[in-house]
Nucleic acid binder design. Structure first.
Lengths: 253, 253
DNA sequence: CGGATCTTTGACTACGTTCAATTATTGTGG
DNA sequence: CCACAATAATTGAACGTAGTCAAAGATCCG
């Protein structure tokens, strides 16, 4: 785990979308006043049960996932520092998936209604948070393509590059490596593969000099080749300022 | 295609989430004043290009999809009457996927900024539209599980039951059948399978009496067994009224 | 040090793909 | 209205990617 910047990664993320006023910064910081630790391995949002809280993740990794009755599990997405958990919790009576901590987690819990209030009081901030929700959906869409239409080899490489990019944005990856607190089982459940096949695929990626997993660290061997092989394009991950027309419409509110 | 009710399917969908005031109904109807036809087969949102407009679909089917450079295609989700296309278009400079009409389409186009205004003027309506976005994400999540962790047989059955439920909600399916304007190629690109295997899987579903595809119509043979076999649970599709706390928070805005 | 968890490898199986050819269906112009 | 082309569905055969089963090493941690 790393030290965060003064204002936390969420603020950094959102400030790439809108220029934040002091009031808006205060609002986000108010949401991050409470702090709670969640132990690695514990499930803190349960599929089919009511949401308790909405969380902003300060530090650590979690997974959003679903489980079938016979135990088959599918990871939907990883939750990294600066991400929301249960962003839609004010709108749904129960969760449609579970969330579990992969590492010890530090989160900022808040009442779901706090977000409702924020949309009313700080519409520009609301837009930035909505942008974050849209980005989550874009990541999920990429996950569908990855699983549906890429080979195991491409799939695995693509996920690693996606994580590299996401971690760059929150300052948790160096240029060519990052900490990956995942067992091959979690990786398998993310990629829709068996554990054994993930293992063989990682070996092949290593033998080809593309990347190497050593302990819980990934070292990229040849990023260019990896990006080409996986046809990775980072656009869906990158924060852009809101279109001008939207900014205009927002200030008219 | 079918005749819609007086106010259209979107209003029906949203009114299951909040009780709509007259002003709110007027607002939605204002967004549906313009009408445009889009020919079957044409792609009207292009991956990587700027969004032109946001659309509410009045009638017809479309697909949201992505294509890899070698032609492999993955359908993310179907767009049915009452669904939005480009709901996030005010927040992103370019689209992260393409959208194409499967049938002739009737849509209501609007400027993306109209939605921004709506969130400001009608927060409750904004919440209902946000609910719709959350539901789209839930459908996408289910798509990930379907492709990642279900067999071809389960996958295909599960998708058909999902479509049955979605079409029920917009009044486009009878109790045990509906029109399915898809080639087996589109089905294959949705399920992450080859055309040939989709064909064989449909045959198996037919031989087992679960469902039958005749022309462009699906007839469910044994819904109970299909639901059990696919472990289908409709909760992620159903509109529920907003939680009370949210309603309270909304009226305080 | 010793149990538990995780990783790695081999051998075999099977689900799903690819290639190829045949048979509907659909749409269109003569 | 039929002929013909084009598109879509269907089937067979061979192949290959990925899964399953089983067992042996590594690592982690108390």
């Amino acid at each position: 785990m790393k030290t965060e910047q003064a204002h936390g990664v969420l603020l950094r993320k959102l400030s790439a979308v809108i220029r934040l006023s002091n009031a808006e910064i205060d609002c986000i910081e108010a949401m991050q006043r409470r702090e709670k630790c969640i132990a690695a391995g514990s499930e803190f949002v349960h599929d089919g049960e009511a949401y308790e809280q909405t969380y902003i993740v300060k530090d650590g990794w979690a997974i959003r996932f679903k489980t079938l009755s016979d135990g088959r599990r599918q990871v939907l997405n990883f939750v990294l520092p600066g991400d929301f958990v249960g962003l839609f919790s004010a709108l749904f009576d129960v969760a449609d998936h579970s969330v579990a901590a992969l590492t010890d987690l530090v989160v900022h819990p808040m009442e779901p209604t706090v977000l409702v209030g924020m949309f009313g009081s700080f519409p520009r901030l609301g837009a930035a948070v909505a942008w974050s929700a849209g980005r989550d959906e874009a990541i999920l869409a990429e996950q569908v393509v990855r699983i549906g239409r890429r080979s195991a080899y491409e799939r695995t490489g693509h996920l690693i590059v996606e994580l590299l990019h996401r971690l760059w944005l929150v300052g948790e990856a160096d240029q060519r490596s990052f900490e990956l607190p995942l067992t091959q089982e979690v990786l398998a459940d993310t990629l829709g593969l068996s554990i054994v096949h993930v293992n063989r695929t990682l070996r092949r990626l290593r033998e080809n000099g593309l990347l190497r997993v050593a302990g819980d660290r990934v070292i990229i061997g040849d990023l260019d080749r990896l990006v080409r092989m996986t046809e990775f394009s980072p656009h869906y991950l990158e924060a852009q300022p809101l279109p001008r027309a939207t900014t205009t419409a927002l200030s008219a509110v």
